[in-house]
Design a protein around this nucleic acid. Structure first.
Lengths: 335, 335
DNA sequence: CTGAAAGCGCTTACAG
DNA sequence: CTGAAAGCGCTTACAG
């Protein structure tokens, strides 16, 4: 690899001058002609600046470290990593990816790795909305899709309550009065409680009574979704609409509706949550669902970390979720 | 941050000795007692080795660079990135993630970034099985999920032909004789041709005639899958089984089967390809499908790059795909 | 068994 | 406008 010394020699200048020119700090400090000569030499020698040496000297690496909490084992990872990568690239930063592996030992290793590589900022990414243990030795860190167990760390999460309220209000707006909520038994998943709260708020705001019998919890797998959906749909006073905790549960509602000969949306309206395209666009009819703002959250966090203008004092910021209408909702059938 | 100089001073030794001890090269070169003292000092001062400085001196960074071809825009990315990350971690290497962004300018930028950060090896990851342009200036590079346009670069791909042959043979083994292949019009996606070849090979091997009328191409979206599935299922001599180019197409076959009142697998057997869990486990019945070996391919490639024992002379290695049986196939209905 | 010193490739404060 | 020199934090070949 060509070094700065070689470029400087070829251009007949000192490394100081070459450095100034090639890092764009030559304005008013190096004559145009000299600068031109240096650039020409660098180009012809295919010079690439050594970021290690630069980082050493400057104490800045322009690198974002991502510390994932087993984040890559989930389908939500794609949008978050994609945004971190795309935004970092736009800002001229690099991305170093690490994962906590899910245990303390691995987490310590990952933290050391980030320190050792001298990343300038850290995105601690959670695979689902949750509280995250952020190692005390980390600085310039923020939590993506969760909040820290430290007061001094910014977090960003979806506004679950508002999103669930809007999703339910959408059904109410269509005329539904009996709206079920099919959700999952997922210990530690705080979105379960938050989305139920939003669902109940929407009912209350509309003057409807929240009927606990219309809230059904299933195991967190396809069979569990089926069982919960069946419970709801086989009620004598069957609801005309279902707000699902997530798209995978909506898929279960579709399966059971098909089994019972219920048409969607004519006989039953369904709203999902997540907008995982692989599910939502492959259902028939395509699923109306609340989209998680993972991309926007990650983009915002990276920009804030890089610019150093995250909220101060630190707090957890909630991002709005948008309802994606696709065709699984309609007014309720005539009684 | 604590430096080696400080640790050495605290332990009362030279940096040379401290370095030897902390990098585990002290065996037979430093007395046990001294080594112990150095380690104690390092621990108490929370010393973390500066990888930049080390990399500078050694000319090795123990970093794998991932160069993605818009890889993160696909659901296949998760398994590949996960494997690169997990395996690198096991080997004590770091992962620097970059993306070509899909255009030449961005690719050049990404290549420069990898050079600048002095990564020791590069995984050029394609989002789907394809030929990949590998920049001539890259060394120690291999292609994941594709093959290079350079003779000197190792690639790894799924064995599409064999996989399609096995999937089809599975249906033949169950007694099916009329087996359709529903696939997609996807210019540049070479798997389309390879999987069709495997399908036809299986038929031929079983002494069955390949009927071009049973191979239907749809547009590459849910509506296209529906249209193609309908064409096949509404034939007067309806096939008893369908081998789908991918799981998303299988979802379309399920939708049309439901519309026509065909039960899966009693009336119609379906085999998918990819094993995207979000689709395959949410269908009813769950989909029998060919699993892409993305994780294993990435793991193998990273190990080969790190150990330096990739095939020599370079070639493209094909990985076996495993059929995941789930319940969407059965013997054909009695005539 | 241990240490002094050179050097990896850059950038910057300083001198001219 | 340009250059000589120090120094970022390590590691290693060499001397003792």
């Amino acid at each position: 690899m060509t070094t700065l010394v070689e470029v400087a020699a070829a251009a007949g200048v000192s490394t100081a001058t070459a450095s100034l020119v090639l890092s764009g700090k030559d304005k008013g400090r190096v004559s145009r002609k000299t600068a031109e000569r240096v650039r020409a030499a660098a180009d012809s020698m295919a010079y690439v600046r050594d970021a290690l040496a630069g980082g050493m000297r400057n104490r800045r690496t322009r690198t974002i470290g991502v510390l994932g909490e087993r984040v890559l084992s989930t389908p939500y990872a794609v949008a978050m990593i994609d945004a971190v990568l795309t935004t970092s690239r736009q800002l001229g930063w690099s991305v170093l990816l690490t994962d906590s592996g899910g245990d303390e030992e691995q987490t310590r290793r990952a933290v050391r790795e980030l320190q050792s590589r001298r990343v300038d900022a850290i995105v601690h990414a959670a695979m689902y909305h949750q509280e995250v243990h952020v190692a005390p030795e980390l600085e310039t860190v923020a939590v993506l899709n969760g909040f820290a167990d430290r007061e001094d760390v910014v977090g960003v999460v979806p506004d679950e309550v508002a999103a669930a309220r809007e999703a339910t209000a959408h059904l109410i707006g269509l005329g539904h009065r009996r709206i079920a909520h099919v959700t999952a038994v997922s210990p530690g998943v705080i979105a379960v409680g938050l989305r139920r709260t939003g669902y109940e708020q929407a009912l209350t705001e509309a003057g409807l009574e929240a009927d606990d019998g219309l809230v059904v919890y299933g195991e967190d797998d396809p069979a569990g979704a089926d069982a919960a959906a069946r419970t709801v749909l086989e009620r004598p006073d069957r609801p005309t609409a279902v707000f699902c905790f997530k798209d995978a549960i909506a898929a279960g509602v579709y399966r059971q509706a098909a089994r019972l000969g219920l048409r969607i949306p004519e006989d039953l309206s369904v709203v999902g949550f997540d907008d995982l395209a692989l599910i939502s666009t492959n259902l028939e009819p395509p699923l109306t669902t609340m989209r998680l703002p993972h991309y926007a959250m990650a983009d915002w966090l990276v920009r804030g970390l890089v610019a150093g203008d995250l909220p101060d004092p630190p707090r957890t910021v909630r991002f709005h979720c948008r309802l994606v209408g696709r065709g699984s909702t309609a007014p309720p059938p005539a009684p």
